[in-house]
Simulated scan of single mutants.
Amino acid sequence: MSSSTELTTQASRAVATVSAAESGFSGASGAARQFLTFRIDAEEYGIDILKVQEIRSYEPPTRVANAPEFVKGVVNLRGVIVPIVDLRIRLGQKAEYTPFTVVIVLNVIGRVVGIVVDSVSDVLELQPDEIKEPPQVGAAIDTRFITGLGKIGERMLILMDIESMVGSPEFGLVD
């Protein structure tokens, strides 16, 4: 098994494990929260694991005419047409497709959407004291979709509000 397939399989198992335990999630601000971590270029990001439906290896989607550059196209996922958005391009990063490139399939705001990232790392549980407020840097950096920064040892995660991002007018995926 290739290392990218192995990594995708491990992350998928973690998502399945967390999904099975979903009913026990309290959602309270004082409770630990679990995040799927992934990389885009040199940065590590985290999204709420409860928004993740599955993780798939990247396969070129069917292009859609006149779509923005970051919308790579659509795929048929068990009868559901899923738009595929390259989050790397949307965030202004370069997009190289390697054996580690994966699609994180999300279920957000009543829609199924795939986001392309460089690689998936793991699922981490963060305690409330491990999550810090996003930095206040003025108008220079758009922090609308950053819910906080997670710190675990030497690792720093940028925690994203993926539901707000996908639902934003800039994404153009929701009416």
Rank of each mutant, 00 (worst) to 15 (best):
M1Y: 12
S2T: 14
S4A: 14
S4G: 15
S4F: 06
T5L: 08
E6M: 13
E6V: 10
E6W: 12
E6T: 13
L7G: 03
Q10T: 15
A11E: 03
S12E: 09
V18S: 06
S19L: 07
A21T: 10
G24R: 13
G27Q: 07
S29M: 10
G30N: 08
A31G: 10
R33T: 06
L36S: 01
I40E: 01
I40N: 00
I40L: 06
I47C: 05
I47K: 00
L50N: 05
K51V: 02
V52Q: 01
I55Y: 07
E59S: 07
P60F: 12
V64G: 11
A67T: 09
P68Y: 06
E69D: 14
F70E: 03
F70W: 07
V71Y: 09
V71G: 02
V75E: 06
N76Y: 11
V82Y: 00
P83R: 04
I89E: 03
R90T: 05
R90Y: 11
K94T: 12
E96W: 04
T98N: 13
T98P: 04
P99S: 15
V102E: 01
V102Q: 01
L106V: 12
R111S: 12
V113Q: 01
I115L: 05
D118R: 07
S121K: 11
V123G: 01
L124Q: 03
E125A: 13
Q127D: 14
P128I: 11
K132N: 12
A140L: 10
A140V: 04
I141Y: 11
I146G: 01
I146N: 02
T147K: 13
T147R: 08
G150M: 05
K151P: 06
I152W: 02
L159N: 05
M160C: 06
D161V: 11
I162V: 13
E163D: 13
M165A: 08
G167P: 00
V174E: 13
